[in-house]
């Protein structure tokens, strides 16, 4: 007697699986579009919402979440959803600015370390080592304090401390590309360094840079929020998301839980959206390293 092992059969589950697998590319693209729209929506929301719902309405004080006020209202009767959107928009803009500066620093130093080598490389690696030898938050506090605190302090601190991993990735990428056969060949053919950089380096580095930048955003935003929360960041007059959460601490024991919970959920969603966006972009560029 003989049997046929595992002959391919088309059961409904199998067809469903095949459909899903074939649609992974569309799903990835869809996720990227959806994530981008969500985050853009948060960032531009203050311009659409205007100042409405932010004025004091004493009759509407301390309302728990309801259909009229999804996030409830605060001790002055202000709508927490609108406040949270304003705050998060501000935090995202600050975080994006700081992260972009950081990405520029990271790219510049990574390229310099990888291209020049020698003492330039040694100094940059040394700086990275020093940065890694201190807890990140302590470093942030030190820099934010030293440059005088405030919005400027947060942006500088976040920008100066988030470039290290990106610089490492770029440096490694440059070193790898530099030692590859096609770059050697280009050198032998007498191509200039600039030509090689444009034709061989850029195509390799740009995807890395893009994914690295987007995955940098959530860190930058979380650190901005943390600094504002402990009072070293944005001033209390600019209600960034960290400030809103810090304020909620004062009303905690009164049982107004929504003041702290709801803005936090919004922040969490934004951070997750960035992570999601980054992962999907990465799996589009390089399916093998994605988290699937």
């Amino acid at each position: 007697m003989t049997i046929t092992v595992n002959s391919p059969q088309k059961s409904p589950q199998k067809l469903w699986r095949i459909w899903r697998q074939n649609n992974r590319r569309q799903q990835t693209l869809g996720a990227i579009v959806l994530g981008t729209l969500f985050l853009l929506g948060i960032i531009v929301s203050p311009w659409f919402l205007g100042e409405s719902g932010l004025s004091t309405v004493l009759t509407q004080r301390n309302q728990p979440p309801s259909l009229a006020h999804l996030f409830g209202t605060d001790w002055l009767g202000r709508d927490m959803l609108r406040r949270s959107l304003h705050g998060l928009s501000l935090s995202l803009r600050v975080g994006l600015l700081a992260a972009s500066v950081s990405a520029l620093i990271g790219t510049g130093l990574g390229l310099a370390a990888g291209t020049f080598g020698g003492w330039v490389d040694a100094v940059i690696i040394w700086i990275v080592d020093v940065f890694f030898s201190l807890p990140h938050l302590v470093l942030l506090i030190l820099i934010a304090f030293a440059v005088g605190g405030g919005t400027k302090g947060v942006i500088i601190a976040v920008a100066l401390t988030h470039w290290t991993s990106l610089a490492r990735v770029i440096r490694a990428e440059v070193l790898q590309t530099n030692s590859s056969d096609y770059v050697h060949l280009s050198r032998h053919l007498g191509k200039s360094s600039l030509w090689i950089a444009r034709h061989h380096m850029v195509p390799h580095i740009v995807p890395q840079l893009l994914v690295g930048l987007i995955l940098l955003f959530p860190h930058a935003i979380l650190h901005e929020a943390a600094l504002s929360f402990i009072g070293i960041g944005l001033s209390p007059h600019l209600p960034a998301i960290g400030i809103i959460l810090a304020e909620s601490m004062r009303h905690l024991s009164t049982g107004y839980w929504w003041l702290g919970v709801m803005p936090g959920i919004l922040l969490l969603l934004a951070v997750k959206a960035f992570d999601w966006l980054g992962e999907n972009l990465r799996s589009l560029f390089d399916p093998k390293t994605s988290q699937g």
Partner: peptide, 15 residues
């Protein structure tokens, strides 16, 4: 995915 016929000691060798 595997197909074909495997036999070991007179009996089919399924996974």
């Amino acid at each position: 995915a595997m197909s074909g016929t495997l036999q070991f000691q007179g009996e089919p060798l399924t996974p």
